[in-house]
């Protein structure tokens, strides 16, 4: 009887694990096909929020426009993406990113099933000083 239970659990485990394989990053490949950025943050070198207002995320046009505070050190900004469930980002962000050329930068969101890829363009602008 015990042997039967053991075999049943082992078989169940094998079947259960085989449903969601892992990708090269060790992340589960699921059956979700959603693929979008749900939120975006930009931190300065002091790990404080560097943006001056809420970012504009357009999931149709796949763009993110963000304005940073006047005087922000553009060479040292840390973008943080919040993604839909099971999605991942490419290339990975492992440190501060240099935005000092103010050129749009691209990151690709990959869906949970790894079949949908959407490239988002991030554009950083700097808050301008207003003169009274």
């Amino acid at each position: 009887m015990k042997r039967l239970i053991f075999i049943a659990i082992t078989l169940f485990s094998i079947i259960g694990c085989s449903k969601f394989p892992v990708d090269e990053d060790g992340l589960l490949i699921t059956d979700r096909n959603e693929c979008y950025v749900s939120n975006f943050e930009l931190l300065g070198r002091d790990y404080q929020i560097a943006r001056s207002k809420a970012p504009v995320i357009d999931t149709i046009a796949q763009t993110i426009d963000v304005e940073v505070l006047y005087g922000t050190d553009l060479k040292n900004l840390w973008p943080q993406f919040s993604l839909c469930p099971d999605a991942k980002l490419e290339p990975k962000i492992t440190g501060f990113v240099d935005f000092s050329d103010l050129q749009p930068k691209e990151w690709t969101v990959i869906s949970g099933d790894r079949k949908v890829r959407k490239t988002y363009t991030v554009t950083v602008t700097v808050q301008e000083r207003t003169y009274e």
Binding site: L69, Y70, G71, Q127, R129, T130, Y131, E132
Partner: peptide
């Protein structure tokens, strides 16, 4: 040659200076 920093205080309008 010894001066490394200058301190300023300017409460500029609309920005965090």
């Amino acid at each position: 040659g010894k001066i490394d920093l200058i301190y300023l205080y300017r409460p500029l309008s609309g920005v965090n200076f």
